[in-house]
Every structure is written in structure tokens, then in C-alpha cells.
Nucleic acid binder design. Structure first.
Length: 706
RNA sequence: GAGCCUUUAGCUCAGUGGUAGAGCGUUACAUUGACAUUGUAAAGGCCGGUGGUUCAAUCCCACCAAGGCUCACCA
């Protein structure tokens, strides 16, 4: 027996060594299957693109879980003889990365404006080099069998060309347009944001009821309810529902807007809910997206009274100019009280939209931006999902996604930040929404558009290119919070640019890893867990085990470290099982390779039972992995290995040292190692290295036992 | 406001129309023989609440409660 097995298993020493063995052997490359002679899958490719982590920070538990899921799939397919490619990379993450670099500079007392654009971008690139490599290094620690020679970054030179090409292609088709519209504006980041880049928080505030006097009869009022009285300075109408009997006679009448003393009309619009507030709404077309839509329908003038920093603008009136909106609000209320026009105020909880990157309150603003028309692209995407060309692992996401696509607005794709892809047209310094480039990930990473045949609107890949070999991919695995931001956009981008071929067939939305108390894991809450610490403490295999063992169904999981302890114990158990079996494997077995023959009639009841169970376990584990029930597969293996094989059969074998028993032990061990390898790749590879098999290959490229 | 999910042992979770299961934790006993990161055994649950369907409900249905998620232009 190999002397290694006589010592206890040491993950720290083993894991780095094994990982190097795999890398040196070139086993992560798609060609790793070529050593096989009899391989029915040799022509089939199996591709997964890693959701590129942002270069903002470090690996978190979600990455660890997601990478383990993808690694399980890739390792199994590799063992099955497929031409596998797991393509890694990182995302430049526009606003997020610009913000972290700005924060770092702030500690040194400088702003990006002090540095200037060019110098600032140099700093961001330095950051990217440091953190981009770091996070990929952490994936290696976890055992991720990515093909590192295919590593991509969303701002690689080729990738930038792909982004340019995609933009111009939309533009030439008339799908991208520029226009002045009210958009979501982050006054901290000084940029526009798409509807998806907002987060909502409940806030307690007040609902103020203000009396607006009629011009012709100053004794009559229309009472309007608002949470933001200061915006009345920009009102250009009051709107009521056309079916609201209370106001029918007032439609078309004129109101004298208090404080500003402007004349504004009372209009009728179906967007108004009769039952909320007073049923009459002040309309501020410049500072509310809904109001701007009402304004467009009625050709209302726009009055921009709040500037890009959230301060009152000149148009708000001299006495308000320069005030913060809070101060302006206080002042407006004071004035209304003086005028005796504040009818009442009541407590009101409402949802405030905030920037998903810096948490500042969003200030809707009219702004000249670029938009991508969504209707047609959304319809294509819906068709692909409805017809089953792309499938979610859980039906509920299908429904949610289709609903979202049915109510979609045009996508504001321009951002006023410095870090990102420049809009490839003259006359603008804007960059693109970071998700515009992420949307191209499944094909831009594979050589699109250079790998396409010439003179075609859609792409037919040239023979032999990565694009031809590895597109479409088979499965994408990601977190639920980026289904709309990313997954949907990849689908329509694939359909648009790759000849109606969706970028993947299956979508795995994995559980969210929560802290044990059910709260979100986050650094600022102090609830975060660093997967690298866990790997140090338990080993990568045990960390993977702990995560997958807890992943039953698609429920979010409250992360419990005790499962990692179970994984560590299990690794030890496996190590000792191997030690026992290999101590007992005699010379004869060593010569016979893994294909051991039995005479069934000679086997005992116990022999037959364990072999039958092994067969059943092999089949169910295979099926569970194919159906993405990873937790279930691991439970099955755990129970079989520990309780059926070790507790029962190994104990039995001690009293019955026949040739057949040794064969059964040996055969079971080799199958177990193979079945367990996708889940716990390091220890299984290490043990495999000591197993006496003829013409043995590393386990990572051995044959899957079914 | 609409939709969805969860509730089972101290903790994290499986599960089934007919005596309730795992891991971790706890308790007792066992140790030079693959493994104390072990083995054997034990304690521990009116399966969130109330009604209904059924011979029979933790499971199916309705309602309620608590917690969570997603979407939406309620000012």
C-alpha cells in the first residue's frame, strides 16, 4: 500500500499539490478527453461560462456555492468524455468599481476630479489588476477546474470591439436612440441608472395635503396629496381621473399655483388612482417618471427645479435656489402654513428608490441619454422562454421573468461615469451600462464578432473557432438577483447577434446563501463569512461538501458551519476506508485493473447486496446531477459510503477474507472515488493516486462509472 | 397593491395519506486491529394555529399567524 495513506489526510498539503498536477497536465482544457480510445462523446462539447465576478472585491459565499455547482457539472461531463470548457473571467463592473476606487482615493484626501480622467482610469486599472487576479486565485483554491487559458475580462481589447459592434448594430437597426427623458439619477454617483439598478427601502414620511386655489374662484380649492411638497415649485398641472365624479366639472379649469404664482391647468389622466389621497395629483413632469409620462400625453411644459446635485435650481425661484430639497421642503411647508393652504399632513410610509451601488436617494431628472428599445427584444426573449428553448431549473422564475418582460420599458444604457465602455459615437463622453457588456459574455468571450463569417447581419461562426465549437453553452448558473439584469439580457443578445440561437439551454438559479439567522450576508452587517477562511479551517473539499450538502431544493439556505465539519469528518472517513480496502487488496487484484469479474453464484448475500446498492446509487447520483439536485446526490453518496459500505460491508468483510470480498471492496472503492470526485475533487484524486489500477489516468479525466 | 416561498428534534434541514428522519450538538458505554475527525446505544418532536375532506392528515383543501422573497408609476 502506498505510504501516503498511512498518514492522516492533510487538505492543506494535498490541495495545492493536486491543483498543480491538474494544471500542469492540461486537464482543464477542452482537449483533455482526447486520450480516450472508445469515447462516444468525443465530438460533443459542453460549455459553461463563469458568471464573471466583479473586480471590486473578494470571493464571497455565493461565489463559492455557484462555482462548486459549475465545477460539479463540468467535472462530471469531463469524465463522461465531453469536450468541456468552463470559461472564467471577470467583469469591470462600471459604477461599482469606480466607487470602490473613489473610496480608496477619498482616504488619501483626493477625488477623481483632482486626478483627472486619464490618471483616475490608470488607478482603476491598477485596482483591476490586483483584485481581478485575486478573485480568480481564490476560485483555484476552491478547486474550480476552469480553463484558465480562456480567461476573459469585459474590457479586454477584443471584448471592447465586441461591445462596439453590438452597439452599432443596434444603432443601425434603429433600436438605439438618444433622447431627453426623465431618468433615474444618482446624485452621489452623478450618473443615470436603469430601472433595475435601484433598490427600494420603506421610509416613514409624511403625506401633505395642500390646497390649490382656483384662478376664477379663489374661495374654491383642489386638495392635492404629496410626499414631496418642494416639488410643487415645478408643477405644471393638476391631474384627476377622468371617471372621478368629484372633479368632473373642474377638468379644464385653471389653478393658481401657490408660492410660485403660476397658472396651471387641471387635466384628466387615466394614470390617476381615484382612491389614493384626494384623487387629485400635482404633476411635476421634470422630477417624476410617471409625471413625465402624464406630461407627454398632455403636452405639459417641463420645469427643472432640482439640479444634478439635488439642490434647488434657479427655476425654483430666487428664495429657494441652492437649498437642499429637505430645506426647500421645510420652507415650502412654512410658506403654505402662512398662506393657510396646508390642509393637513399625516404619517405615511412609502418606498424610496435608492442607488444599488451607493444607497443614495434617487432624484428623477430630465436628462439626455441613450436608450435601447426593448419591445422587440423582449418579445423574442419571451418566445425563447415560453417555447422551452431556454429553461429555468425552477418554474417560478419562468413566470417571474415573463411577467417582467411583459411590462418592460426601454433600457437606459448610457452612464455618466468614467470607468466603462465608451459609447462608440462622436459627441458624447458617456460610457455604457456595465450590463450592456455583460450581456454579450457567452459569445464575446468566444471570439464574436471576429469569428463570424463576413457579410452577414447575424453570425455564422467560422469552422474551428471557439465560437463554433463552444456556442451555444449548455447551462448558466447564477443568483436570482441578476436574472433580469443579466440572464435576460444575455438571452436577447444571443438571439439578436447569434442567429436566433440562445446562449444557453438551462438556467440554474441557485439558492442565496444567508447568514445562520436568516439575514443577508454582508460585510457591513458583520454577517459575512469568508469562504477562504473556511477552506483554511476545513479544506476545500469539506467546504464544497458543506455547501452542497445543505443545498436541498432551491430554498435559500441559512448557512450552517456544522455541515462543513461533517464534510471534514467524511473526508477522514473516506481516507480510512481507502486505507482499509487497499491494505486488503492483494497482488492479484492489482493486476486485474478495475474491471473485475465475479461468478455471481459464488457471491454471498452481503456481496450481492452491496453491489446492487452501488449500482442503484450510481444511477441515482447520475440522475440527480443531471437534474441539478446536487444536495440530494451528495446525501445519497454520503449515506451509501458511510452506512452501507463502511458500517455494514466493511465490518462484514473483516470476518470473511475471501478473494471475492476483496474484489467487491476494491470495485466499490473505485466507483465511490469516481462518483464523489465532482463534489470532493482533491481527496478523491489523492486517493486515486494510490489505487493500483493498470493504465491509470488522473481521476479528473477517468471515465464516469455509468 | 399583486404574486411566490417558508414554518418538522436545541441548531441547519430531509421526508411520507397509515408506528416521524439526517447532520451537528447532548448523554452513556466501548479503544492497542481502516478511522476517537470512530463505534454502539440513548435522550430529545401534540411536524406554526384553527377548521374541512378522509376509515385515517405532518402530508390534500380553506382560513389565520409569523418570517422571507419578487414585481408594480399609488402621488
Amino acid at each position: 500500500m502506498n505510504e501516503k495513506l498511512l498518514k492522516p489526510y492533510d487538505p492543506k498539503e494535498t490541495e495545492d499539490r493536486i491543483y498543480k498536477l491538474w494544471e500542469k497536465g492540461g486537464f482543464f482544457a477542452p482537449e483533455a478527453h482526447q486520450h480516450r480510445t472508445d469515447n462516444p462523446n468525443s465530438e460533443k462539447s459542453y460549455t459553461i461560462v463563469l458568471p464573471p465576478p466583479n473586480v471590486t472585491g473578494a470571493l464571497h459565499m455565493g461565489h463559492a456555492l455557484n462555482s462548486t455547482i459549475q465545477d460539479i457539472l463540468i467535472r462530471k461531463k469531463r469524465m463522461e468524455g465531453y469536450k468541456t470548457l468552463w470559461l472564467p473571467g471577470t467583469d469591470h463592473a462600471g459604477i461599482a468599481t469606480q466607487n470602490v476606487v473613489e473610496k480608496k482615493l477619498k482616504k488619501e484626501g483626493i477625488t477623481r476630479h483632482d486626478l483627472g480622467k486619464e490618471k483616475f482610469l490608470e488607478k482603476v486599472w491598477e485596482w483591476k489588476e490586483e483584485y481581478g487576479d485575486k478573485i480568480l486565485g481564490q476560485l483555484k483554491k476552491l478547486g474550480a477546474s476552469c480553463d484558465w487559458s480562456h480567461t476573459r475580462f469585459t474590457m479586454d481589447e477584443d471584448y471592447q470591439k465586441a461591445v462596439e459592434k453590438a452597439f452599432l448594430s443596434y444603432y443601425e437597426k434603429g433600436l438605439i436612440y438618444q433622447g431627453e427623458r426623465v431618468i433615474n439619477w444618482c446624485k452621489r454617483c452623478q450618473t443615470s441608472l436603469s430601472d433595475l439598478e435601484l433598490e427600494y427601502e420603506e421610509e416613514k414620511g409624511n403625506l401633505y395635503y395642500i390646497n390649490y386655489p382656483l384662478k376664477d374662484d379663489t374661495s374654491r380649492f383642489v386638495s392635492v396629496a404629496t410626499t414631496r411638497p418642494e416639488t410643487m415649485l415645478g408643477d405644471t398641472a393638476v391631474a384627476v381621473n377622468p371617471k372621478d365624479d368629484r372633479y368632473k366639472d373642474l377638468i379644464g379649469k385653471i389653478i393658481t399655483l401657490p408660492i410660485a404664482n403660476r397658472e396651471i391647468p387641471i387635466i384628466a389622466d387615466i394614470a390617476i388612482d381615484k382612491d389614493f389621497g384626494t384623487g387629485a395629483v400635482k404633476v411635476t413632469p421634470s422630477h417624476s417618471i410617471i409625471d413625465s409620462e402624464i406630461g407627454e400625453r398632455h403636452n405639459l411644459p417641463k420645469l427643472k427645479i432640482i439640479d444634478q446635485y439635488g439642490k434647488m435650481a434657479k427655476e425654483a425661484g430666487e428664495e429657494f435656489e441652492g437649498l437642499s430639497s429637505k430645506d426647500a421642503r421645510d420652507k415650502v411647508i412654512e410658506k403654505l402654513k402662512e398662506l393657510n393652504l396646508l390642509e393637513k399632513s399625516e404619517e405615511h410610509t412609502h418606498r424610496v428608490s435608492k442607488c444599488y451601488r451607493c444607497n443614495s436617494v434617487i432624484e428623477p431628472q430630465p436628462s439626455n441619454q441613450w436608450f435601447l428599445k426593448m419591445k422587440g427584444l423582449a418579445d423574442k426573449t419571451k418566445e425563447a422562454i415560453e417555447s422551452g428553448k431556454v429553461m429555468f431549473n425552477d418554474e417560478k422564475w419562468k413566470k417571474v421573468t415573463l411577467d417582467w418582460l411583459s411590462n418592460i420599458r426601454d433600457w437606459c444604457i448610457s452612464r455618466q461615469i468614467w470607468w466603462g465602455h465608451k459609447i462608440p459615437l462622436e459627441g458624447t463622453d458617456d460610457v455604457l451600462d456595465t450590463w450592456f457588456s455583460s450581456a454579450l459574455w457567452p459569445f464575446a468571450t468566444l471570439g464574436w464578432p471576429n469569428a463570424c463569417t463576413q457579410n452577414k447581419n447575424t453570425c455564422t461562426p467560422q469552422s474551428g473557432t471557439d465560437l463554433e465549437q463552444f456556442y451555444p453553452t449548455q447551462v448558466i448558473s447564477t443568483a436570482r438577483d441578476i436574472i433580469n439584469l443579466w440572464v435576460v439580457r444575455m438571452i436577447f443578445s444571443g438571439l439578436e447577434f447569434m442567429d436566433d440561437t440562445p446562449p444557453f439551454t438551462n438556467i440554474i438559479i441557485h439558492p442565496t446563501v444567508l447568514a445562520k439567522d436568516g439575514r443577508r450576508m454582508s460585510k457591513s452587517l458583520g454577517t459575512g463569512v469568508d469562504p477562504i477562511d473556511l477552506i483554511d479551517k476545513y479544506g476545500a473539499d469539506a467546504t464544497r461538501f458543506g455547501l452542497i450538502y445543505q443545498m436541498m431544493g432551491n430554498q435559500d439556505m441559512k448557512f450552517d458551519e456544522s455541515h462543513l465539519l461533517a464534510g471534514k469528518k467524511f473526508a477522514n472517513k473516506l481516507w480510512n476506508i481507502a486505507r482499509f480496502v487497499l491494505q486488503n487488496a492483494n497482488e492479484k487484484i492489482k493486476d486485474q485493473n478495475a474491471k473485475l469479474q465475479f461468478k455471481m453464484e459464488n457471491l454471498t448475500k452481503e456481496d450481492k447486496e452491496i453491489l446492487e446498492k452501488l449500482d442503484a446509487v450510481t444511477k441515482s447520483v447520475n440522475k440527480d446531477i443531471e437534474e441539478y439536485n446536487f444536495g440530494q446526490a451528495l446525501h445519497t453518496l454520503y449515506d451509501f459510503i458511510w452506512h452501507d459500505f463502511a458500517d455494514v460491508y466493511i465490518e462484514y468483510s473483516k470476518s470473511k477474507e475471501t478473494e471475492d470480498v476483496k474484489k467487491v471492496l476494491y470495485l466499490s472503492l473505485t466507483s465511490i472515488l469516481k462518483l464523489l470526485h465532482p463534489f470532493m475533487p482533491f481527496i478523491t484524486e489523492e486517493i486515486w493516486g494510490t489505487v493500483p489500477v493498470k493504465d491509470k489516468k488522473p481521476l479528473i479525466i477517468e471515465t464516469w462509472p455509468i
